[in-house]
Write a protein that binds this DNA or RNA. Structure first.
Lengths: 238, 238
DNA sequence: ATCGTGGGATTGTTGAACAATACTTCAATC
DNA sequence: GATTGAAGTATTGTTCAACAATCCCACGAT
């Protein structure tokens, strides 16, 4: 044990980026995930192995590995001998997604008194992002900002696993907006609500914030479900 | 639209079992998942593609699809050019797992007043299962029963997504018991506690139940973390 | 003890092949 | 006209073999 060793031990932890290069399957999965989330691939679309593998220059086997990753995230659904499709959520799914969000967001907000400062400011940043987007009338970015807001709320819990589950739930929620054609306008009226919630958290009054959030989720769910079921009837059930 | 059509429309929904046969990759994943959960494969073990594919008569490609599924569940970890290993949780993971459980179990229990009867009785069944196992001194089955108990608690929320996340969390928790060699004895003293919690739920007093559960989680986490960190120091950190 | 330097083993990825299954088309039947 | 049956076609499911890229280990040199 020399002096050099001591210095080395004190060195900062290895940055995440230094992890060994990602596999092709993961990169393809990342790309497809982005396509699904921002609607380049709409719900119900079938992903042809042959065409995708040719288009992106990867083998079918590699592509299938990516498919497996994404079906575990519920973004794709695998049907035996029929292929993989972009998941098309039903109104039951919408209800369940909100149910899951209640479990994730409300406890996180209620326990926000002890949350670290940067977790709180992340919430504020998401609100600001949304307001900036409203400024220029960018509906799409408003939706993204709203997702960030709720991701930040869940992040108050400080748990990596909850963060990850939350982002899956939000990604799937985004699919809901894609099945209906009325994409992001739903978020517009909620911006001021978000601002209020953030204020309560910032002034360390988490219980009031939780009450507000709970109301938010209720009305948001109701609005979505009714719009969704109306659309389900219109488009034909099956 | 004839009379026959009416009759057909009235037929019960297709049973789940009728879903198209599962793929080989999923079956292999199921098998490996079971191996990991009940310790036939212990944390840190590397899963050789060549040996596994030969042993179970599947191609390396199919095996890799199964690997992708299981690494999304955090049961396996994929290291580029090194292979897949059975996940070996750290003490940080233990803390995070309990954090996640708090978010899942406590809200479910608090909202248990409106839970359907069979969801409540599932909790009771898990308690009974644990007591039966204690009767015969079957420690392993006691651990399983305890997992079922907490799965049933989360099930009170009535959300498929929460159920699924919970089972992943519990599966990973089981890995924690495998890294330490003291497998399931940890569960023994908690059986009476479980019984009490179930009683509170059954008599529709969810708030008291939640308080009890919260205390349970606190002490259980503390005991596990201390035992775990002690072991980490003993076995060598890295 | 540390540092290079092969050599061997394992994974990463591809391409082709074939079987199994689903979909489509079209003719035959009621 | 709608339904059934029977090809034929397209796509997925799975395997195999090959090769490149990378890691790991052991050996020898400093």
């Amino acid at each position: 044990m020399t002096a050099t060793d001591d210095l080395i031990d004190r060195l900062p932890e290895p940055p995440e980026a230094l992890a060994r290069a990602t596999s092709q399957a993961e990169r393809v999965a990342d790309m497809l995930r982005a396509f699904v989330i921002d609607g380049a691939l709409s719900p119900g679309t079938r992903l042809s192995e042959e065409r995708l593998s040719r288009k992106y220059g990867v083998s079918r086997n590699t592509l299938r590995e990516a498919f497996r990753l994404l079906s575990r995230e519920r973004l794709l659904v695998h049907q035996m001998h029929r292929g993989v499709f972009v998941n098309r959520p039903t109104s039951d799914d919408v209800r369940d997604l909100f149910s899951a969000r209640r479990s994730l967001e409300l406890p996180a907000v209620r326990g926000a008194r002890g949350a670290p400062e940067d977790a709180v400011s992340a919430v504020g940043a998401a609100v600001a992002e949304g307001e900036a987007a409203r400024e220029v009338g960018d509906w799409w970015r408003m939706g993204t900002a709203n997702m960030h807001f709720h991701q930040a709320l869940a992040g108050l819990a400080g748990s990596p696993r909850i963060d990850e589950f939350m982002s899956q739930v939000l990604a799937e929620t985004r699919l809901v907006f894609h099945v209906m054609n009325a994409p992001e306008q739903f978020h517009a009226p909620y911006l001021d609500w978000n601002r209020r919630i953030h204020l309560r958290i910032a002034e360390r009054d988490p219980d009031t914030a939780a009450v507000e959030l709970s109301r938010y989720l209720d009305t948001s769910e109701e609005q979505l479900v009714t719009a969704f079921t109306a659309m389900e009837r219109a488009t034909g059930d099956a």
